[in-house]
């Protein structure tokens, strides 16, 4: 049955099914596994750097956990999707702050990683994998990368010399959920084109 003959609900169901298959395909192939891990790791580092949770510090080696960290884990810091760091790890010149944003960043990075790995497969072996050429994985990762600056959006605006209007601030605050939505949509867009051999 061609997709045009399916009702919208069935088309969605089929697209989701194929997305699951495409995602499994990423983890079955060694080269796409490497692409996934590489893209995920790079993105996570970029995200943590962009929100200021991984950067040069005061030096030394030290671990600090704030008092009652579990109760502070959900405490907002600089915006709606910016959370209070509850631990600080100083490793020589680099300081890492742990907050719920690390978990969010990991989720984002994972999504970017899957998108990136699928894009890699499109580039390497589109026919063998049954994947069409209209992958939007890399495009979809752009708002995700921008979302990494959402928590310090005004400072980013400073760099480009733009004053922070209320609309711009709101826009920056929405980048993270927009990024997640676009990345999920991109996965389905790519995944629905996949026909994985049984």
């Amino acid at each position: 049955m061609s997709s045009s003959e399916l009702c919208p609900r069935d088309r969605v169901r089929r697209a989701l099914g194929r997305t699951r298959s495409a995602t499994r395909l990423v983890f079955r192939r060694r080269d796409s596994q490497v692409a996934f891990v590489t893209v995920t790791a790079i993105y996570l580092l970029l995200y943590l750097w962009a929100i200021g949770h991984l950067s040069a510090g005061l030096g030394g080696f030290d671990l600090l956990v704030v008092s009652d960290p579990l109760s502070k884990l959900l405490r907002p810091e600089l915006g709606p999707f910016s959370f209070t760091p509850v631990a600080r790890l100083a490793l020589g010149p680099v300081t890492y702050l742990f907050s719920l944003n690390s978990v969010l960043g990991l989720v984002l990075a994972g999504l970017v990683g899957v998108n990136g790995a699928l894009t890699y497969l499109v580039w390497r072996q589109p026919r063998a994998c049954g994947i069409g050429r209209s992958s939007t994985g890399l495009l979809a990762s752009i708002p995700a990368l921008l979302s990494g600056t959402a928590c310090c959006g005004p400072v980013v605006l400073l760099v480009v010399g733009v004053q922070a209007s209320g609309v711009l601030l709101t826009g920056f605050q929405l980048l993270l959920p927009v990024a997640v939505t676009v990345l999920l949509g991109s996965l389905v867009l790519v995944g629905r084109q996949v026909t994985v051999p049984e």
Binding site: V37, T40, L63, V66, P69, V86, A87, L89, Y96
Partner: peptide
């Protein structure tokens, strides 16, 4: 990614058992 996961687990574990610093 593995590094961050370890960091998360380490921090979560520490929050449960460590004598925590600071009171602000």
């Amino acid at each position: 990614m593995p590094t961050s996961r370890r960091a998360f687990l380490a921090a979560a574990g520490l929050t449960a058992v460590a004598g925590c610093l600071g009171n602000s």
